[in-house]
């Protein structure tokens, strides 16, 4: 499954932001779809800390730790999402994929003004998702560090999992549309 596509999909007058929503630790997090290069199948998502995919090396860490939170202690549906932006590539382990969604950018709100610190750089905004709130991570920040001290294990003993790009067409997640017309 790959939710890759334009950052904004235009259909008639509608402009939507295509996002992948996941759970990571205690948070519901949204990643912009164009950032996502691949999603490892469940059987390849467990012990991996470094992934080589089409000669690109992705260092894998928990998305929750990247965001300063503890990952879930038990996540049977854990997946690794391979992300790329320019020449920067990273993999992030998430607890569960909730699915792709199209969101009208008008419904993506900045953090309230009470948040005055660096978090305004980390989080692009939030939107209402199902019965909760999803935090939209800033892709520039997400891939901005080459070294991640939070990564489980050290690179020296990292297990390499060489995979081919899966592009699993058989795996389709239902697209949700939030405050915009369905465009897919």
């Amino acid at each position: 499954m790959s939710p890759q596509g334009k950052p904004r999909t235009e259909a008639a007058t509608e402009v939507v932001e295509r996002l992948l929503v996941v759970t990571s630790g205690p948070m519901t997090v949204a990643l912009t779809a164009p950032l996502i290069e691949d999603i490892l199948p469940p059987e390849e998502s467990n012990a991996t800390v470094v992934v080589t995919d089409h000669e690109i090396t992705y260092r894998v860490s928990d998305l929750a730790r990247r965001l300063g939170q503890a990952p879930a202690t038990h996540a049977p549906d854990s997946r690794v999402i391979l992300c790329g932006y320019g020449d920067r590539h990273r993999g992030f382990r998430v607890d569960q994929m909730l699915g792709p969604t199209d969101v009208d950018p008008r419904y993506i709100h900045p953090l309230p003004p009470h948040f005055t610190g660096e978090e305004r750089t980390w989080i692009k905004g939030f939107f209402l998702y199902r019965d909760t709130i999803a935090l939209l991570v800033n892709p520039d920040w997400l891939l901005s560090h080459d070294v991640d001290i939070d990564a489980p294990g050290s690179p020296a003993d990292a297990k390499r999992a060489a995979t081919g790009r899966s592009n699993r067409q058989d795996e389709v997640l239902e697209l949700e549309v939030i405050n915009a017309k369905r465009t897919a």
Partner: peptide
């Protein structure tokens, strides 16, 4: 209502809580 933690460097402001369509920060 259950709060959504927000990674934050703002002292004591570290979550959002949702009441219907309204979202408020948590101190």
């Amino acid at each position: 209502a259950d709060a959504m933690p927000v990674p934050s460097r703002t002292p004591s402001v570290n979550a959002l809580v949702r009441y219907g369509e309204e979202v408020l920060p948590v101190f």
